[in-house]
Computed example of a mutant assay.
Amino acid sequence: MATQLKVALIQADLVWENPAENRENFSKTIDQISEDVDLIVLPEMFTSGFTMHPESVSETMDGETMQWLKKLAKEKNSAITGSLVIRENDNFFNRSVFVEPSGTIISYDKKHTFTLAGEHKIYKAGTKKVIIDYKGWKICPMVCYDLRFPVWARNTQDYDLLLYVANWPKPRINAWDALLKARAIENMSYCIGVNRVGLDGNDHEYSGHSACYNVLGNRIDATPFEKEGVDIVTLEKSHINKYREKLQFLNDRDDFSLKV
């Protein structure tokens, strides 16, 4: 069990609906990470941007992007995660994938599809919350709009890291900042959010604000707010244990179940 988890947050501009070019750009960025990390985090729909045209960018779980992720994870000896458009059984999913160096893949389908953009009409929503056990760290992956729904993220599994990947637009970035911090505090876990920057094919602007908060809601990263960049943060199990034992807030959490 690792007492530390070193995580690279990659805040990037995305080439609209061009998986090959996005893979090439991320390969260059990841190659420049000079230190060893345990986990590399890419944004939501990192191969395409937040598109409502899945037929032009969708792949299977054996497609080029998944093969690329497995190769990269092995080469870097680091897990890699982010979401992309997956086609499966005549349905499209906004699927978060977590690819380990061993080749193991764990996936989570976005539960809350973004109705304002019509995502619910095009993508099939997920129904299962996922907890990943990686190097002794329990990680809960979520995608973008999921951030607005605290019940779905409720820490009933004693996870250590709540992880959001997103294409969260600039006009509502204050909500992103506030809710990431709130999710860390209320769940007494680290909370990481990785967002994109730049303009997409619909002229929506994204301002990044990728961040990592500790269990007290203190930001511990130095990611530039509105620029492309990579920041590396070190998470400490001792920090989680210290404040959960001292404050014991999770002992008072509500006991309820969800209907999905």
Score class of each variant (00 low, 15 high):
Ala125Cys: 05
Arg23Met: 13
Tyr164Glu: 05
Ile40Cys: 06
Asp252His: 09
Asp255Lys: 10
Ile86Met: 13
Thr113Asp: 04
Met1Val: 08
Ser102Trp: 12
Arg219Ile: 04
Tyr243Ile: 04
Glu228Gly: 03
Phe26Ala: 01
Met66Trp: 03
Lys246Cys: 06
Asp109Thr: 11
Asn214Val: 00
Lys74Val: 00
Trp16Asp: 02
Leu84Arg: 09
Ala166Leu: 15
Val260His: 01
Glu100Leu: 03
Val85Trp: 07
Leu258Lys: 00
Leu199Asp: 02
Ile220Leu: 06
Gln4His: 07
Tyr159Pro: 07
Val37Lys: 10
Val151Glu: 14
Ile131Val: 15
Val233His: 03
Gln4Glu: 15
Ser189Tyr: 02
Thr234Arg: 01
Lys111Cys: 02
Arg95Pro: 09
Ser78Tyr: 06
Ile185Phe: 15
Thr115Tyr: 15
Met61Gly: 02
Leu162Ser: 12
Tyr123Trp: 08
Lys124Met: 12
Arg219Val: 13
Glu44Ser: 13
Val15Gln: 10
Asn167Lys: 06
Ile232Ala: 07
Tyr145Val: 07
Ser34Thr: 11
Leu161Asp: 09
Ala2Cys: 14
Gly201Thr: 08
Asn187Phe: 12
Trp168Asp: 00
Met142Gln: 09
Asp255Thr: 10
Ser27Phe: 02
Glu226Asp: 08
Asp254Met: 13
Phe114Cys: 11
Leu9Gln: 11
Glu24Thr: 05
Tyr190Asp: 05
Pro43Lys: 02
Glu100Val: 01
Asp252Trp: 08
Ile232Ser: 08
Thr104Asp: 09
Lys70Glu: 06
Trp68His: 03
Lys128Pro: 03
Cys191Gly: 00
Lys246Ala: 13
Ala222Gln: 05
Ile220Asn: 07
Leu179Ile: 00
Trp176Phe: 14
Lys110Pro: 04
Met66Leu: 15
Pro171Met: 07
Pro169Leu: 03
Leu39Phe: 07
Asn18Cys: 14
Tyr206Trp: 00
Val85Ser: 11
Thr47Arg: 11
Asp158His: 06
Ser210Gln: 09
Asn174Met: 11
Met66His: 02
Leu258Ile: 09
Gln157Arg: 05
Leu9Trp: 06
Ala178Cys: 03
Ile192Phe: 07
Asp31Pro: 04
Cys191Asp: 02
Ser107His: 08
Val130Arg: 13
Leu72Phe: 01
Gly136Phe: 02
Ala2Lys: 10
His239Asp: 15
His112Arg: 02
Leu199His: 03
Tyr123Met: 03
Phe46Trp: 15
Met188Arg: 11
Leu39Gly: 08
Ile232Gly: 06
Asp177Lys: 13
Thr127Tyr: 02
Cys191Pro: 01
Leu116Gln: 15
His120Asn: 14
Val97Ala: 14
Cys212Met: 01
Gly217Tyr: 04
Trp176Gly: 06
Lys138Gln: 15
Ser56Trp: 05
Glu21Asn: 14
Ile220Trp: 01
Ser48His: 05
His209Trp: 03
Pro43Ala: 00
Pro19Ser: 06
Lys110Ala: 10
Val233Thr: 04
Ile30His: 01
Ser83Phe: 00
Arg183Thr: 01
Ile173Met: 09
Trp16Ser: 12
Pro101Ile: 11
Gly63Met: 02
Val233Ala: 04
Trp152Thr: 11
Leu179Arg: 01
Arg183Leu: 09
